[in-house]
C-alpha cells in the first residue's frame, strides 16, 4: 500500500521552495526566486499556500525602506517533507525491475 503524496508538496514550485528551505536556516524572497527561476507573482502565491499549510514561516519587514520577505521552514514542514520523501522512495522501489 502506498502512502499518498502530500498534494501541498506535490507541485513543482512548492516542492522546490521546501527543498531549498530544508537546507538553510532562512532565505529571502529574492534568493528563492533566483534559485527556483520563478516569477514573483507565482512564487508569492505558492509561498502563501505553504504558509497556510503551516509548512513555512514568513516574516515581512522593511529593510532600508524596501519590503523584505524572509521564509523559514517549520517543524511541521520538515516532517511533511520527510513523509513526502519516504513516499517517493516507496514508489521508486516498486518501479525498479
Amino acid at each position: 500500500m502506498f502512502a499518498e503524496l502530500d498534494p501541498i508538496l506535490h507541485s513543482q514550485l512548492r516542492l522546490a521552495i521546501i527543498s531549498l528551505l530544508i537546507g538553510v536556516k532562512e532565505a529571502e524572497f529574492t534568493f528563492i526566486k533566483e534559485k527556483t527561476n520563478s516569477t514573483a507573482g507565482n512564487l508569492s502565491v505558492q509561498i502563501q499556500k505553504l504558509k497556510d499549510a503551516g509548512y513555512i514561516d514568513v516574516v515581512k519587514e522593511f529593510k532600508d525602506n524596501y519590503p523584505n520577505t524572509t521564509c523559514k521552514i517549520t517543524s511541521k514542514g520538515i516532517a511533511a517533507f520527510e513523509t513526502y520523501v519516504n513516499a517517493l522512495q516507496q514508489y521508486l522501489k516498486v518501479q525498479k525491475p
Partner: peptide
C-alpha cells in the same frame, strides 16, 4: 510529474542551497 522528477527537483534545490 513523476517521482523521478520530484527527486530531481529536490536534489537540484539542495545543491543550490549549499
Amino acid at each position: 510529474f513523476s517521482p523521478e522528477e520530484s527527486l530531481r527537483i529536490i536534489q537540484s534545490m539542495i545543491d543550490k542551497a549549499k
